[in-house]
């Protein structure tokens, strides 16, 4: 994991996709940045209007396309800018989290959390903890799918 603190990255960076809602979590990440908290750089942020915009298929597509981890973050329940988007999201994402192990994908590769725009520190600790978790798991098995496909194309299967 590499950390923005002027030092050389010690471990190879992994690819983590973050779906952040425009109103809370994107602001929270911004707050963390403005406060100059050091954060791992493995996360690629995709800003969405609301966590309710995140269909579970975004997560699956990311994981199957080679993302090593996916983090969805939205406003705290009751605080959604659109009043209820995150409450729908919570149900869908919980169902997805329970579905992943049956597909043979580690459910730990996916997480959803709530971070408000003022919680820069919470953002920093969450993203650090999640990045550490993904590094402990190592690169995604989706790589295996692609290898499988490659063998298929080469006529090995």
């Amino acid at each position: 994991m590499s950390v923005v603190d002027g030092k050389e990255p010690s471990v190879k960076e992994l690819r983590i996709i973050g779906f952040l809602c425009n109103w809370c979590s994107y602001g929270g990440a911004d707050t963390a940045g403005v406060s100059r908290f050091s954060q791992p750089t493995d996360l690629r942020i995709i800003r969405v209007p609301c966590s309710g915009r995140v269909t579970p298929l975004f997560v699956v597509k990311a994981l199957m396309s080679g993302a090593d981890g996916v983090l969805v973050s939205g406003c705290h329940p009751r605080d959604c800018h659109y009043s209820e988007g995150n409450l729908y999201a919570r149900r869908r994402l919980e169902v997805l989290k329970r579905f992943l192990p049956t597909l043979g994908i580690e459910p730990e590769r996916f997480e959803y959390i709530w971070v408000s725009a003022s919680e820069g520190e919470r953002w920093q600790t969450s993203v650090t903890a999640f990045t550490e978790r993904i590094h402990a798991l190592g690169p995604s098995p989706a790589v295996k799918v692609n290898r499988y496909d490659a063998r298929l194309v080469a006529g090995g299967l």
Binding site: V60, M64, R92, V95, A142, Y148, D149
Partner: peptide
């Protein structure tokens, strides 16, 4: 390829969840 076909099954299943 497998990833496309697998993703379709997940897509179908998720659209039927509940």
């Amino acid at each position: 390829n497998v990833s496309q076909k697998w993703f379709f099954q997940v897509l179908h299943s998720m659209h039927l969840a509940g």
